[in-house]
Simulated scan of single mutants.
Amino acid sequence: MRTYVAVLVCAAEAAPTADGRRPLYRESFVLLTAGTEDEARSKARSHGEGMETSYRNEKGELITWTFRQLVDVAEVPDERVGDGTELYTRHFRNFAAYTAFEPLLSGEDL
């Protein structure tokens, strides 16, 4: 068995409201064990679908989380997962765009 990391995207949306809020997206990095990459992809999709849920928030609004996309599945390069293990790497060229979509960098209050 090998260890893989899957990158999943889910979205949270409130039932239609007058304020027109945009969805909140969540990117999750999930560790999986599988014999092959195809098996890991299948497990990742199942995991993403299992993340779907609905509930009422403190304002009584219906919030629905839906699985949107399996972005990637990659084998974890280190055989031992522990302190300092690199799980996943991606590259990008536009730091301003990254900052704009990442709430923790843009100062947006979730």
Rank of each mutant, 00 (worst) to 15 (best):
E58L: 15
R56Q: 10
R22G: 15
T53F: 10
R21P: 01
G107V: 05
G50Y: 03
A12Q: 12
H91G: 12
F67W: 03
T3H: 02
F101P: 00
R22Q: 14
Y4Q: 01
E13R: 14
L104Q: 14
A14L: 09
R21W: 06
P23W: 03
R90T: 14
D78L: 05
L87D: 01
R22K: 14
A15Q: 14
T64K: 02
T89L: 06
D72P: 00
Y98K: 09
T53A: 11
R21T: 06
D109H: 13
E27M: 11
S42K: 06
G35R: 04
R45H: 08
D19A: 11
G84F: 05
F29V: 04
V5C: 03
K59C: 06
A100S: 13
Y98A: 11
G50R: 04
C10A: 14
Q69F: 08
V81L: 08
G20Y: 01
L110K: 09
A14H: 07
E37N: 02
T53H: 09
D38G: 11
F95R: 12
E108L: 12
G20M: 06
Y88D: 01
R2K: 14
R2F: 08
H47T: 09
T66D: 09
L110Q: 06
S42I: 00
D109S: 12
N94D: 15
R41I: 00
E13A: 14
P77W: 03
G48T: 03
G48L: 01
A11P: 01
K59I: 03
R26L: 09
P23C: 05
R56S: 10
L62G: 01
K43W: 03
E108M: 09
A18E: 05
K59R: 14
F29L: 04
W65P: 00
L8Y: 02
T85L: 05
L24K: 10
H91R: 11
G60H: 04
G20F: 03
L32P: 01
N94W: 11
Y88M: 01
A6T: 04
A11T: 07
E108Y: 11
L62K: 12
D83C: 12
Q69L: 07
Y25K: 09
H47M: 09
H47W: 04
L105E: 08
G60R: 04
T36H: 05
T99H: 14
A96D: 15
A74I: 03
L105V: 07
T99C: 08
T36R: 01
V71S: 03
T89A: 12
D72A: 12
G20R: 13
S28N: 06
V71E: 05
Y55R: 11
L104C: 12
R21S: 15
E102T: 15
L31Y: 05
F29Y: 15
L31A: 10
V73P: 02
R56L: 08
N94T: 07
M1C: 06
L105S: 11
S46L: 13
E79R: 10
D109W: 07
P23S: 05
N94R: 12
L62E: 14
R26V: 13
V81T: 15
D109N: 13
P23Y: 01
T89E: 08
